[in-house]
Amino acid sequence: MRPSDAYPNYWRKPPQILTHRQWRIGIQLAILAYLILAGASIEVDWQRVAMGLERGQRFIMGFLQPDFSSRWRDISQGLIESLTMTLTSTVIGVIISVPIGIGAARNLTPRPVYLVCRGIIAVSRALQEIIIAIFFVAMFGFGPFAGFLTLSFATIGFLAKLLADDIEEIEPGQADAIRATGATWWQLINYAVQPQVMPRLIGLSLYRLDINFRESAVIGIVGAGGIGATLNTAIDRYEYDSAGAILLTIIVIVMLAEYGSGYIRKLVQ
């Protein structure tokens, strides 16, 4: 065996991702330049921020000592709107997304239907809930009905896409076996597709219920009803203890929904 000082005494880890030296340096410089430019674009009014610190402290105090009572009427009204619109929009959204999801599955439907359904999904997914809400509020007036429509529309895009992807991935063997028995298209859906996709559909619906509640807290900001409107008012009036109460309520409901849906999903599968 050679003595150890016959070996190099220097080792550096070779670069793992960008092995080309010039590229590596170039990209590092580009990142640095971007960070400097982006940092320069922030204009901070430090006086305003310093003023804000005191408010921030009040907000944290409000969060720690929430005030549920003085705005209870508004909070409960907002909550009822949020919860009802969450449930109704999820139900309607699921009901509509099932045919659209089946229509958007390449292996089950003719080309024109497929394109139309995929188009609906793309539109629904591309626009954010809040932007859809702005339009629905402009069209249907203020209040939870516009919120309900918004969430239903968003649910369709979300669920139909996942459902369609799922159906496209089902085992072709099972579908062929049913087809071979001479089944009609409806029987095919009922026997081959439904059993494979159903548990996942229930799971996704529960997940979407959870998302819809969170979103229902947001779209109120643009007038589509729900707890978001109450929160917006509370913050506008600098009532941080009420705002804290609302936020805590949202957090608790989201937590309950998450645990609850996890439980139901386990029960179903």
């Binding site: 804000g52 408010r55 921030g56 913050i235 937590m255």
Partner: peptide, 24 residues
């Protein structure tokens, strides 16, 4: 959980009230 439950828009609403409007 707190961070996940509250949408970015609501965080922004709060922060605009606290540190003022703007990129920060």
């Amino acid at each position: 959980v707190t961070s996940r439950s509250i949408n970015a828009l609501i965080w922004a609403l709060l922060l605009v009230a606290i540190i003022g409007p703007g990129l920060l």
